[in-house]
């Protein structure tokens, strides 16, 4: 995964205090950089290395696509516009676009990224843990069944995201799991 490194990142206030999980006071899913806040600027900066890497990856994928498209096995060879035609056209087009993007990345100033935020304190850790827990949940669901796996999954998640206290760690997972079980299993007859 091409990691967007942050050369000019401004450390957030919390960073020195706690490297790990931050617990927001009021909490909200969303926040905004555009409406005036007192916080330091957390807008992501343009990044040439990243632009070059993604363009190169795009080019590699496009070229691989051309090869793979030629390898599609047909039960009846008809020539002309056959099942290989469209994937081939697409791969050639993508490779050409990616090549142009690569040239642009090398010779032009990198793209503006002002719509993105910098990585927050403990951001990578939080993302990595959520992904690992998510994958473990998918596996655990198969092994121990929906109810058990989901309660544990939710408890771990809220803990990683900064929730504390028995209500958060125990009550919330149990109630949410129960609700979804009723909705899906009982009402919608989904075999969970």
């Amino acid at each position: 995964m091409p990691t967007p490194d942050e050369p000019t990142r401004v450390p957030s206030v919390e960073e020195g205090l706690e490297s790990g999980i931050d617990t927001p006071p009021g909490g909200a899913y969303l926040y905004t950089a555009s409406i005036g806040t007192d916080a330091p600027d957390t807008t992501a900066q343009p990044n040439r290395t990243m632009e070059i890497v993604v363009a190169a990856v795009g080019l590699a994928v496009g070229l691989a696509g051309i090869l793979l498209a030629q390898g599609i096995e047909l039960r009846a060879e008809t020539g002309g516009i056959d099942p290989r035609w469209w994937p081939t056209v697409l791969s050639i087009g993508s490779a050409a676009l990616a090549a142009a993007l690569l040239v642009a990345a090398l010779v032009r100033p990198p793209f503006d990224r002002s719509d993105l935020e910098t990585v927050g304190a403990g951001g990578w850790r939080r993302l990595l843990l959520a992904t690992v827990i998510g994958a473990a949940y998918v596996a655990g669901w198969q092994l121990v069944g929906y109810l058990g796996a989901t309660v544990v999954f939710l408890a771990l998640l809220v803990w990683v995201f900064g929730g504390r206290g028995w209500k958060t760690i125990v009550l919330f997972p149990v109630i949410t799991t129960g609700f979804t079980y009723l909705l899906f299993h009982t009402l919608l007859k989904v075999p969970l």
Binding site: V13, G27, Y29, L30, T32, T37, T42, G120, G123, W124
Partner: peptide, 19 residues
């Protein structure tokens, strides 16, 4: 969601329903 996890800045949080 993943982007939020990655870029969450506690200091900048503002409850959106208040606006």
């Amino acid at each position: 969601l993943f982007d939020q996890l990655l870029t969450h800045h506690a200091a900048k949080v503002r409850p959106i329903s208040s606006l």
